[in-house]
Amino acid sequence: MKYNKFIESSLRGTLSFLRASVFSDGYALEKGFLQSIDPRINLLTVIIFLVTALFTRNMVVVLCLYGVCLALASLSRINLGFFLKRTWIFIPLFSLFIAIPALFNIITPGDELAGFTIGGVSLAITRQGLSGAALFVARVITSVSFVVLLSLTTRHFALLKVLRVFRIPKVFVMVLGISYRYIYLFIEIIENTYLAIKSRAGGEIPRKQGRHIVAGNIASLWLRSYRMNEAVYGAMVARGYDGEPVLANDFKTKTRDWVWLSLVLVAVLVLFYFSAQGRFGSI
């Protein structure tokens, strides 16, 4: 729709948030491989994979990790088509797009692979440009895929709770939990408000008025939630909050969780060893 694009984009944003949450909760409840792993171990292994992808200088290692990620997605009963679509849009495609100029000698000088002239300017794709851009995009898609895999196979609320593993102050973990619930509430408020504006706006809303509508909505969102603060605090006190956050520990690790963690560690060390030995070549 051409008119009132800002309303449409905001509504699309809220919709995609809700869709992402519903999909991830749907997959997190499936009886797949990663869903059966303790969320703490799940987060830890994904961080190990991410750090490996970050440190490696070898394309083969990155591709191996991407293969592992796709295999894990499949073992966790995630539809591969859905997973590929979800992971490639938007960041990796954007990275692919911005990596294109880096292929050429104007950005990355080096050994020329193919040269041509556009509008009197001679350009050449260089070996260094090509391998650098390929490694960059592969690293980005692998990292994004692991994070999406984590968020799809672990319930969002559990995922925020496991941050305690990293000795993050309790107040942060509590704030994370409450704010996640607030996001849902805010989404609902925005959706209802924008639908109301959309249904009452007969024609196109001028840009200036549109900006005032957005600012007014942000401000009223703040006012409404600010005034709710006391009620939320009252609810917390009614449930036993005495100024110190208490977090229930309902995670249990099983033998298979430790086996999985050990396997990941061994696999990563083997990858690094072979890469250091030059078994994967110099790419």
């Binding site: 948030f17 107040v171 704030v175 607030y182 840009r207 957005v214 969102l221 939630s225 605090y233 917390m236």
Partner: peptide, 20 residues
Amino acid sequence: VPLLAIGAAFSFMIMMFNVP
């Protein structure tokens, strides 16, 4: 304390408001 959580959710939400 809930105000911090409101602030966090609020800063998350601001990015969802598209401005013409």
